[in-house]
Design a protein around this nucleic acid. Sequence first.
DNA 1: AAAATTAATATGTAGCTACATAAAATTGTC
DNA 2: GACAATTTTATGTAGCTACATATTAATTTT
Lengths: 240, 240
Amino acid sequence: MTVGGDTVTEVVRLSWKDVRDRVHGRVLDGTYAPGDRLPRDEDLAEEFGCARSTVQRAMQDLSLSGIVERRRKGGTRVRRDPVTRATLDIPITRNEVENRGAVYGYRLIGLTTEAVPPPVTAKFEMAGSEEMLRVRALHLADGHPFVFEDRWVSLRTVPEILEIDLAAQSANEWLVRNKPYTRCDLRFYAMNADAETAAILETGEGAALMVIERTTWIGLDPITSVKAVTAPGYEILTRS
Amino acid sequence: MTVGGDTVTEVVRLSWKDVRDRVHGRVLDGTYAPGDRLPRDEDLAEEFGCARSTVQRAMQDLSLSGIVERRRKGGTRVRRDPVTRATLDIPITRNEVENRGAVYGYRLIGLTTEAVPPPVTAKFEMAGSEEMLRVRALHLADGHPFVFEDRWVSLRTVPEILEIDLAAQSANEWLVRNKPYTRCDLRFYAMNADAETAAILETGEGAALMVIERTTWIGLDPITSVKAVTAPGYEILTRS
DNA sequence: AAAATTAATATGTAGCTACATAAAATTGTC
DNA sequence: GACAATTTTATGTAGCTACATATTAATTTT
């Protein structure tokens, strides 16, 4: 490009993502080795010819994804023991089924009001026990069992749940649409199907099943705790 | 506070986290219902008495955590189908064992060079097959089997692996410390222990085991793909 | 020498401006 | 009226400044 006789080099403006990737590249190629301290943001900014705020955004992102650690005054250093950090999305079960191109089905199995047993009070981190709504239901994909959920819903926090026809609409959908939470604990493990679960999921006793337990709160108040037992072959994938 | 006879109200400066929490609160209490369009950043900024950049940071965070969706010109709206979004940390197995207060142990079971079978080329998204290093090893906690890993390492991408004494140091540790990746795919599922796996993990045949498969790349080049079969009782928890 | 205080410093955050970009809404053309 | 071109608009990003905050390092006090 030429303006008034002078050659004007195109000014390439670095985005914070460019800075992030270039710094990440240096971690990848060993320029900055695990445990090493990186130059301060200001120096990197000068080197890259951008503002410190741009470097700051880049480094924060690297810090979030577990590549580096940052401490005020301590500076930034490459994490010595990198962790694999992944983001998981757990959709509403209906959407999960429909995204697979299957027809969603739902069957209410049991609806009772019971005193919460100790394993569940423990999940809620509650001091004592109380009466909650227990909803047992089956989600189906193309008519086949997909997920069996055994759920407890706090009647103190969510009394409106009693107004809902849980034979027509799953508690999963109603809660997730109407009761956003501020805290969510997840737990994944494998279990062998017991006789009852095997019967419900139409599989053999002893089959290896993946279980997803999810407990949610709004503030300090418990909303719900579900044990979702998935049918054989279920798998969880990290997104992108 | 009084200065020179005038009452001076303390100016409370809102942080972007405050803005985020207040907007989130409105989603929680239904002021903004699922599907609703929120005021534009500028209006929220005026309402809260802060800069648009502060609102922008807040809204971006809400967008990242799956509460709202933002689109240029389209504005911001509350997600109609909220997903449970969680962040998972998968540490180096040694650290995982030691963080539980157990003594870490490691045993190399097999080390061969083999042509990669189709299921693994599929994970790597490779066109054809090639020779890779296959490492089978057992991680122990207090002398008991903890995780059995069956790993493939690309000799094209990571030829240095041949220099490492994999009887002394696990490929898991060496790779994670020396070969940062740019892409990582994770897959979790449950399987019944077959005879060989049961023997290695010292459990019964048919036991329900959680499997974590992880495949990593640097750029487009495959680094490694592991199938980590965990001992009975293993569970994955989301952090914080 | 140990403890408490102070200073120095790197990151964290808020405010402002200017401009980029994507998508919707409008206008113009055939 | 359908399609293309243009304008409008809300979010996205970069740069700058100023100040906050957490830690470490240095200094002073006991």
